[in-house]
Design a protein around this nucleic acid. Structure first.
Lengths: 311, 311
DNA sequence: ATTATCCATATCCTATAAATATGGTACATG
DNA sequence: CATGTACCATATTTATAGGATATGGATAAT
């Protein structure tokens, strides 16, 4: 049996006439008669009762008709879904975000733009750390991840650079340098450095420590923060100072002040990673939107990068 | 697109290899490769990622796979259902019963036998009156009806005789003839006759009245009963006497006694009616079972006709 | 380096769906 | 009552498409 047979069956049933159904189907009457006959033979049942004027469904035919319709509907849905997937207009994307990434206004913006371009795509977000996100990509529990390079195991992953974000230094309220707009690392060499565990973001972690090293100082290590953005409250509590991506300066917890770092200053790099085998148009489109958004963003003024409403 | 394509798609996905899928499908590898390729072109998406050793589902392919499976399942169900309907092994039958018919042990027995022969057939019962049942047959709200002939409009209906049941006369407790085993109609000529409205069963109604006429008497008409079996409680209330099918003697309400009628006695005829256009094997089978059961039943002794447990 | 495995391409063949032509039947109409 | 019309069925031919066979190419295993 064939889907064509079902379509013929339904069309003939709807028109009550083989001749008219043939018109609708864009074919002649004799082949349609034969196809119906063949279907009946294959099924072993009479679907129609031949009358002098047209044909009429038998009871069995009437029983079978709705089932044939659902199969045809499903098949049509199948085609629509496939075409939609082909054009990246529907489906589901699971997006992983490295620590503190959502604080960068750029990212929510890109997500919003993507959802406008593909309204039928459902999106799930998950915030985690870079190594975990890479593992999630590998085991297919995430489709796309914005991470802080480098990735531990780049095999089977494609990584696209997004942007290098400047870092700032966070000082507690009342710190002796709280009034200095620009600070160099050697000026805080004696302040305990609040930093996140290296496992949560080896790239950024190492960037911070090597910047200290370049500055020729070795800070005492303060308490470990549970995540990248988690350093700010600890600074606020007076446990030390911290070097964070500039986007974190949006957090105004407990009078913490953020100060531009003079060179040598680490940079917080962001990249987007996907599986190399990934060829869903949805994902490619998301990556494209992200990259163009980043290019625009890098040419913006500081005020535009962090709109007043957010700062 | 064709169901065959879907079957190929699913089989290749299950085996992870075109070659092995081709074996399973009983065909060679090259045509299967081509069909998969065609399907991908038609859908506009890559379903598989060709690898050096076998093929692997793409993300889109994995999304589409379960949908393809459901379509295949539905199609298989469709075939099974059609074949089942062809053999009369499944489906649904709506059976209409005229008044007081279920009291005849024969009918439940036939129903039970039918359900044994076709366990997957669902059966719905409805008790009504003969004209209403015929109307229900015409408008397809019932498939089969056991009625009391004649039917008002026999066009497009086929009626098969089932049996002629003797009638008995029902007397209230303490009636002057309560001890007489055999009674003739002229003996109760002065007792009010409890009878159902003619609309509920014209055939039986007329049979009763013409029997009285043949006996040369015209009884006073008592209260009308709401249905055929509804006469018995009215007799029990002392409102008169009633002529009922013998199967009603199973009702022992309020000391009513039932007495054989000497000639001229009406007969309560039962028949089964179906639409003439009806050609469902299920229905034909039911009719057949009914008729053979009736033939057997007519040759039974009274004790067998009304088993002790029921009488 | 060689073999084996597996997918892709090319060509041929067969099966089947569709078109054309025609016949038969019941209902409508003059 | 005869004719015409509408509709389905049958027969024959044609074209298309799926399948088989043969072969080539790429990659991993020995």
């Amino acid at each position: 049996m064939d889907i064509r047979h079902l379509r013929y069956f339904v069309t003939v049933a709807d028109h009550g006439s083989i001749t008219r159904a043939a018109e609708e189907l864009g074919m002649e009457q004799p082949p349609l008669s034969q196809q119906i006959k063949q279907l009946e033979q294959k099924l072993g049942v009479a679907l129609f009762e031949r009358q002098t004027r047209g044909v009429k469904l038998t009871e069995i035919g009437a029983t079978l008709l709705p089932r044939a319709r659902t199969i045809l509907d499903l098949q049509a849905q199948f085609l629509v879904t496939a075409h939609g997937l082909a054009r990246g207009e529907l489906g589901h994307i699971r997006l992983g975000l490295a620590g503190a990434v959502p604080l960068l206004p750029l990212i929510p913006l890109a997500i919003r733009r993507f959802r406008e371009s593909a309204p039928d795509v459902t999106l799930s977000l998950e915030e985690s750390n870079t190594p975990a996100l890479c593992a999630a990509l590998h085991d297919h529990s995430t489709d796309l991840a914005i991470i802080r390079p480098p990735v531990p195991d780049p095999t089977r992953l494609s990584v696209f650079h997004l942007l290098d974000e400047p870092t700032v230094i966070a000082l507690p309220r009342g710190h002796r340098l709280a009034h200095q707009p620009v600070i160099s690392l050697d000026m805080v060499a004696k302040d305990p450095l609040i930093i996140f565990p290296r496992e949560l973001g080896p790239g950024f972690h190492d960037a911070i420590l090597s910047a200290y090293q370049l500055a020729g100082v070795t800070p005492p290590l303060g308490q470990q923060a549970p995540q990248i953005a988690g350093t700010v409250p600890l600074v606020a509590a007076g446990l030390g100072v911290s070097v964070v991506p500039r986007s974190l300066s949006q957090i105004h917890a407990g009078g913490v002040t953020f100060h531009t770092l003079s060179e040598p200053a680490p940079r917080a790099t962001l990249a987007v990673a996907i599986r190399s085998s990934q060829n869903m148009p949805l994902v490619s489109r998301f990556v494209k939107i992200l990259r163009t958004a980043c290019r625009k963003w890098e040419n913006m003024s500081l005020e535009d990068q962090f709109p007043a409403a957010d700062v």
